[in-house]
Nucleic acid binder design. Structure first.
Lengths: 92, 92
DNA sequence: TAGATAGTTAGACAAACATCTGAATATTGA
DNA sequence: TCAATATTCAGATGTTTGTCTAACTATCTA
């Protein structure tokens, strides 16, 4: 299940989207201003992130506002914590 | 630069390799026993992980021993920490 | 040096992916 | 209802990725 999350994170455009969303919620159009790709391409990336559970979307009038879902991000961090000794020990 | 790391993590086989390596160093052959793919395929995955800096290899006689490079893993965790409020705050 | 074992390199191929253009859907405001 | 704006859907295309088989390199042992 976390597989989708890792795959979603593999693309630099999608990681950048998450970084932008970290600063605050954005509409698809606002996000588009930060990239040199077409809107359909961006929409596709957003769909991938949504499918992985990393973002949620909500329509506000004409706009669709995207937000970060930090819960799923936490799950991914949980996987990493198994590899570190500082702060997240569980079995060593 | 962390891009290669994220891409390397996108594949379930490679994540499993890292999990196995977490338990202790392994030769390519020992790792191969855990998967249903050909040795060349596994070798390719190991090369990807090595290229991303996530593992290191060292020849011991006939065998090549693979080890985890937790330092690079820490770098990836650093990226995630920017998205959480628990334990790794830097700019909020 | 020859044979066996461990692993990688090379080349091919199908599936997945990122991107594009053009068309469709949804909402707003005149 | 009509036109404008915001966003997604559909289909096509070139690139990357995961996998395979066959061949190669390196090491050990006799």
């Amino acid at each position: 299940m976390p597989g989708e999350g890792f795959k979603a994170l593999a693309d630099p455009t999608r990681r950048r989207i998450l970084e932008l969303l970290r600063e605050g919620n954005c509409t698809a159009g606002e996000l588009a201003e930060h990239f040199d790709i077409s809107k359909p391409s961006l929409s596709h990336h957003l769909a991938t992130l949504k499918n992985a559970g990393l973002v949620t979307d909500e329509r506000h009038g004409q706009n669709i506002v995207y937000s970060l879902n930090t819960t799923v991000m936490q799950d991914l961090i949980g996987w990493f914590m198994g590899f570190t000794n500082t702060g997240g020990d569980k079995d060593e």
